[in-house]
């Protein structure tokens, strides 16, 4: 039911690093992706997002999602932009009311549709990596009560879902399943199930509150415990993330990646300069960090395995 609970076939070391590192990465990556509409940056982002999604799920699921969901929504976005945006000087077609379709609007709309697709891919990775407990941990310090509520909801949702199934079976045995009878009856049966469920949920919740009180909830000076620790590697990752993001943002602010679309499409990044090249490298490092990390770790384990084999190969006389 929950995407977060599905485990992928491959290991993802980035998911195992500190939640703060995860969050920082996603805020940077998704922020850049949504707010900086630039073809080269977008291209980088698209490749990185696909790579990481494929790593967390599979290439197959990336393609499936692309054709089933992303492509249609991209078309809609493109269509919408071309229809309502009349800026730009290269007119391709003019409607009878005088409103034009322009090349510039088309380019920008196309880029925006890619923004949408890439954002959704990044959020898919986010869903997989930022599990509920990481989220709760991160907000637990600033918003302790709210994050406890979220934790409780995560406790309740599977419990309630199970209960819904049981209640449904109970109602089914009264001849009142949601598939029995006319549409109106079905709806009523749905409402009955729902009412039984909420009664159960509300009445049983009091035990939960008692159990919290019994263990001292509400005393002053509540602390917040977590199983996460900032390891040396987390510090390294943070350093890489902040420096690459910082440098990239510097190049953005000084205008290396600025772009104008109207009245005419102009890219400032070409021809390549030192700053734009290094900025791109920094960005590449930033967004591909999880995948790179995974490659490094895999290579390391491969080497370890080789070494282990080496050690295990005993001299022949032991085999006698």
């Amino acid at each position: 039911m929950n995407e977060q609970q599905k485990t992928s076939s491959k290991q993802d070391p980035f998911s195992k690093s500190h939640p703060f590192v995860n969050l920082f990465y996603f805020v940077c990556v998704i922020g850049v992706n949504m707010f900086l509409v630039h073809p080269i940056i977008l291209g980088f982002s698209l490749i990185a997002a696909s790579l990481y999604t494929a790593r967390l799920h599979s290439w197959q699921s990336v393609f499936r999602q692309f054709f089933k969901f992303l492509l249609p929504s991209m078309m809609i976005v493109l269509f919408f932009n071309v229809l309502f945006n009349h800026n730009g000087e290269t007119v391709l077609y003019r409607f009878s009311n005088g409103k034009p379709i322009t090349l510039e609007a088309m380019v920008y709309g196309g880029l925006l549709s890619v923004v949408l697709a890439v954002t959704i891919l990044w959020f898919r990775c986010y869903n997989q990596v930022m599990t509920s407990d990481k989220f709760i941990y991160l907000f637990g310090r600033i918003l302790p009560a709210s994050s406890l509520v979220i934790s409780m909801v995560f406790r309740f949702v599977p419990k309630f879902s199970r209960q819904v199934t049981l209640v449904r079976q109970g109602q089914q045995a009264l001849g009142r399943d949601v598939t029995d009878g006319t549409l109106k009856e079905r709806l009523n049966h749905g409402f009955s199930i729902f009412l039984v469920m909420i009664t159960w949920a509300l009445e049983n919740a009091i035990d939960t509150a008692d159990s919290m009180k019994a263990r001292g909830y509400g005393l002053s000076g509540r602390s917040s415990f977590s199983v996460y620790r900032l390891t040396r590697r987390d510090w390294w990752l943070l350093t890489i993330l902040t420096s690459s993001f910082g440098y990239f943002m510097y190049t953005v602010v000084i205008g290396t990646f600025s772009m104008t679309y109207y009245p005419k499409v102009q890219l400032s990044v070409w021809p390549l300069t030192w700053t734009s090249a290094t900025g791109m490298i920094a960005f590449f490092l930033l967004i591909n960090l999880p995948v790179l990390l995974a490659y490094v770790e895999e290579a390391y384990f491969k080497r370890l395995r080789k070494q282990a084999k080496h050690h295990v190969r005993l001299p022949d006389y032991f085999k006698q």
Partner: peptide
Amino acid sequence: YVLQNPDNQLVTDKVWHELAFGLENLG
């Protein structure tokens, strides 16, 4: 104090968090 219904007493969604819950409350 341990109550009757095992399901209703659990507050959080993770085993480790449940174990730590009381100690967190006591600071």
